[in-house]
Write a protein that binds this DNA or RNA. Structure first.
Lengths: 234, 234
DNA sequence: GTAAAACTAGACGCCATTGTCTAAAACGTC
DNA sequence: GACGTTTTAGACAATGGCGTCTAGTTTTAC
């Protein structure tokens, strides 16, 4: 009696018809309203209005407000995890032109996983309703930020083994990479704003520049010098 | 339901008497409930119960729910700003033992300004109600994180002029210092947890270690070399 | 001690919201 | 065209919170 149907899968660009479209419309509208008003402040009527759907339709699909909320969170979580996985697969694996490639990766990560719609939604909801639904966001914590750190850590280890980086603790470096990438955007992230492409680019460049000063093998112009930074870390 | 029936006591530990005590008790209780439930989810009755005060007393002091909310936010903001100012005044100004002193400062900053009660409250409320009360949190944005970055930037500039650091952009370095300091605590901060002293110490040490690898003058063992990092920045 | 001020407890009207119910309408399929 | 399903609009009771009011009690001030 729970849900005999598989959760709705969104096919972008192709407008689906029928009840499936209704379900997605409701989910999107509910995500919008829940994000703006929080769980307590969101009203079913407003969600129905935004979704261009009768209130009763919402109650037909999702038994009550809480069921709808859980469905919305899981839907957004799935999208966000898929996007994170996709972005992680573009991590540079070559040692040449490290600075530019890492910068481009940081831009992708910030733009598509952290500053995008779903990222803002999840961060906001985790803070506001995280205590009330611990089980709900636990999987996000593990599959979202947890996976990000673990995966980045492994990727940095690979780069270090290739000799492109000099890293003592890969987990710490992974967290610091993410933190540095957000350093210039923290305020905007907190206020829910969306950075421009220029701001994303600049933030990533600042972050990678500092990251490589701390962890990078000096390349190109310092090729004649022995790597000084290795002396510190070693 | 909730077992928070003891009247709230201010930081001093000295229970004041009279209406002033009531006002503070109400402010503390309201901060607690607003933080947990958000503005919409918080009920005056619960605040009254937590404050051990009649509901009517709240309406006597603060005309309506919104007035109370604004008073609470301003109260917490004032405390947080005073604390931030106090911590900033302990920034190290000597170049010797830079790593330990910066680490201790980072611990103080994280412990007393970012991970403490007021810091969590403000971050949460800014995210949830920031859009609804832009004017209210604008001053926080300027006097809180804004002041932090500006002040840290100036302090780093002073250290750089003394030759203790090699920094190109002081504002960027200030933001990165804060970001690195939070790198290991991000998850806990997001979930509203409170780090232990050991975690604070370790996070600060990791942060400063990396910060000095990127910006620090190489000391002691590299004293004979001219500063190599300046070659990159220049 | 007394008077004013503050506090309490409870009841009250008002309004918004939730979730149910019903009858009508739209939709798709055969 | 007939039929079953889905959607719609509106009415409906029930709940709960906000803000007011009142009557009675406590605290403070003089």
């Amino acid at each position: 009696m729970k849900d005999r149907m598989t959760p709705a899968v969104r096919m972008t660009g192709h407008t689906q018809r029928g009840q499936c479209a209704k379900r997605m419309s409701i989910l999107d509208a509910a995500a919008d309203v829940f994000c703006r008003q929080g769980f307590a402040g969101a009203s079913i009527d407003e969600i129905a209005a935004v979704a261009c759907v009768s209130r009763q339709t919402i109650y037909n699909h999702y038994r009550e407000k809480e069921t709808l909320f859980v469905a919305v969170v899981e839907d957004v979580m799935n999208r966000a995890n898929a996007m994170l996985f996709s972005v992680l697969s573009t991590f540079p694996d070559r040692a040449d032109n490290m600075e530019d490639e890492l910068t481009a990766f940081a831009v992708r990560l910030n733009k598509n996983c952290i500053c995008n719609h779903d990222g803002k939604f999840l961060r906001k909801l985790v803070q506001t309703e995280g205590e009330r639904y611990p089980h709900l966001f636990e999987s996000w914590r593990q599959q979202g930020p947890g996976k990000l750190t673990t995966a980045l850590s492994a990727l940095f280890a690979r780069l270090a083994h290739k000799g492109a980086l000099t890293i003592e603790d890969f987990d710490v470096a992974a967290r610091q990479f993410v933190a540095l990438g957000n350093a210039d955007l923290q305020m905007m992230i907190l206020l829910g704003g969306t950075p421009t492409d220029e701001e994303l680019e600049k933030a990533a460049r600042n972050a990678v520049h500092t990251f490589l000063k701390a962890y990078g093998r000096l390349e190109a112009e310092e090729a004649d010098h022995p790597p000084q930074l290795a002396a510190i870390s070693g």
